[in-house]
């Protein structure tokens, strides 16, 4: 299992310049990818333009968008062009784009797209995207419903899980593999997982606060998600082991504290495994 690092683009109040410094530092570290989330109505950096910039300051790591709320992005052609541009700037085999509808109605209201049309829009975009993006871009589908798995088997390379304890990941990953084999796709889907960490003195509460804020739209579940924050090397080791056993191909650990020391701390925690 490969381990990637999340970019600090969705931690409200991140200092300017942190993201690119973070990317340069991670390029040297033990991580195989740099990933970010997409969100419209939140104090965060825009996903595609950020990845283009990160492509310019890195050479080795894979770049991943987990996941892009595609129906808010207009035509498949415009989106495919952006994706191809990032892939070209990054160099061969370095770009993973996850697509989903996202769970947030406010993003759709702000984007003037009807929430009720999200599934149909993504289906239409996907049909064109697979033609337009071309080979060399890894395409994932995110989402928890049956529709997401149907999309994955139709046109994508794999599945991106939304995060959660290894048991929840395992059952979602099993479903994705079952869908894949039921549809007669050869091999198995690439499966990405994610988690959140905060390491170092005083970081636990800051990190939980950041998660509660980011996930406040999930209502009663924000508390549970915040409680799942990984705050020690042991917790990270156990989490990685659980994901590995459940058949995760790439696990991305996202930061919740906007501080460069988090990159080094995570690197050390991973080496202690």
């Amino acid at each position: 299992m490969r381990i990637g690092l999340g970019l600090p683009t969705a931690i409200a109040g991140s200092p300017a310049g942190l993201t690119l410094d973070w990317a340069r530092l991670a390029e040297a570290g033990p991580f195989t990818s740099l990933a970010l989330h997409d969100r419209l109505v939140f104090d965060s950096l825009e996903a595609m333009t950020t990845l283009a910039a990160v492509a310019a300051v890195t050479r080795r790591v894979r770049l991943a968008c987990l996941v892009l709320i595609a129906p808010l992005r207009g035509s498949a052609l415009a989106l495919a062009k952006q994706a191809r541009t990032i892939a070209v700037l990054a160099g061969p085999g370095r770009f993973t784009i996850g697509l989903g509808v996202g769970p947030r109605r406010d993003d759709y209201e702000a984007g003037h797209v009807l929430f009720e049309h999200r599934g149909r829009l993504l289906d239409e975009q996907l049909a064109d995207l697979v033609q337009l993006v071309g080979d060399g871009v890894e395409l994932l589908i995110g989402g928890r419903g049956h529709a997401a798995l149907a999309r994955m088997v139709r046109a994508a390379d794999g599945f991106c899980h939304e995060g959660g304890d290894p048991q929840a990941f395992r059952s979602a990953a099993d479903r994705a593999r079952i869908a894949w084999s039921d549809a007669g796709r050869p091999g198995k889907p690439v499966i990405w997982g994610l988690g959140y960490f905060a390491l170092g003195p005083g970081s636990t509460e800051v990190g939980r606060q950041a998660l509660r804020r980011y996930y406040s739209f999930t209502g009663v579940h924000a508390t549970r998600i915040a409680a799942g924050l990984l705050t020690s090397a042991d917790a990270i080791t156990a989490y990685c082991e659980g994901y590995r056993e459940a058949g995760c191909d790439e696990l991305v650990l996202f930061p919740t504290v906007a501080d460069l020391t988090q990159v080094e701390r995570l690197g050390r925690a991973l080496q202690e495994r």
Binding site: V153, R154, A155, A183, R185, G187
Partner: peptide, 8 residues
């Protein structure tokens, strides 16, 4: 071929 997806 289905390595490219299904029903393309």
């Amino acid at each position: 071929p289905r390595r490219f997806g299904t029903d393309r």
